[in-house]
């Protein structure tokens, strides 16, 4: 119960973050979406053992969090929640891939550990980029951008409605679960039997609501197409944002900046 409500509040908070008006928030949603996509593709396309060359990509989330006035702690927690997925994908690598790739003093580091680190790093980069996208854009704007960029309208609408009624459905579910808990004692009444009937009720209520919703839409002239009155306009700074970051990502992907930098610093030291 608490967990359902908490997750709703968390999603809601992510949405609240998007009401701000920073230079990042004011950018065209399409530009932010595309930049995020280029970022993710660039990060994901690195070879298996890349770690050092991924590091410079941290620049993007850091800059956006700073300019977009986002709370680092909150985003960090969100990333941690999803972390087990990446962790279990990567954790077998050190067991399977034992070939030693580097020595750190007396410690031999196997290829498995390197690729595990690479997976976790990529995970942090991509998930934070996606969260940041929502936090500086707002979910509905992301949907609008997706549609403008050619995503079939039906899918964009599905996403929008899904997001809109997530809160209603979640609230309803939370209330039902709470009502059940209040009348369940010593774990009796919390079994799968009541769980099934609870879910069934939720489904029926949802169907009813969907029907009323459809009537409400028809009452206001719905004819199968949802029209939005929100002209999106590309400005110079939008194009600049996209081109600048994309160029940087491509550059970082093609040349190993950290290595150059390392060599250069070492050269200075010598």
């Amino acid at each position: 119960m608490g967990s359902i409500e908490n997750s709703l509040y968390n999603i809601g908070y992510l949405e609240t973050l998007s009401y701000q008006s920073t230079p990042i928030h004011r950018l065209d949603p399409r530009v932010k979406l595309l930049t995020t996509m280029v970022f993710i593709v660039a990060v994901v396309s690195f070879p298996k053992y890349a770690v050092g060359s991924l590091m410079p990509f941290m620049l993007y989330p850091v800059v956006l969090i700073a300019l977009g006035n986002l709370p680092v702690g909150f985003l960090g927690k969100k990333i941690l929640i999803a972390a087990p997925f990446a962790f279990f994908i990567g954790i077998f690598n050190p067991l399977l891939d034992r070939q030693v790739m580097a020595h750190l003093g007396p410690l031999a580091i196997s290829g498995g550990w390197v690729s595990f680190a690479s997976i976790m790093l990529r995970f942090v980069l991509t998930v934070s980029a996606a969260l940041i996208l929502i936090a500086v854009t707002g979910f509905h704007q992301v949907c609008a951008a997706l549609e403008r960029l050619g995503m079939p309208r039906a899918f964009a609408l599905q996403l929008l409605f899904l997001y809109r009624y997530l809160f209603v459905l979640g609230g309803e579910a939370a209330r039902m679960v709470r009502a059940r808990a209040l009348r369940s004692f010593d774990g009796r009444g919390l079994g799968f039997g009541t769980y099934g009937s609870l879910l069934g009720h939720l489904l029926l209520r949802t169907l009813d609501r969907a029907q009323r919703l459809h009537l409400a839409m028809l009452s206001r002239g719905f004819d199968g197409e949802i029209r939005l009155l929100r002209p999106l306009q590309l400005h110079g700074r939008d194009v600049g944002f996209f081109l600048g970051w994309s160029a940087l990502f491509v550059l970082l992907r093609l040349c190993n900046i950290s290595q150059w930098w390392g060599t250069w610093v070492m050269g200075l030291v010598k």
Binding site: M217, R220, G221, R227
Partner: peptide, 18 residues
Amino acid sequence: DQLFMPLVYDDVAFGPLN
């Protein structure tokens, strides 16, 4: 049941746009 669009403005504009 009636407010299904992402923003209040869009919702109020829904009918007139249709």
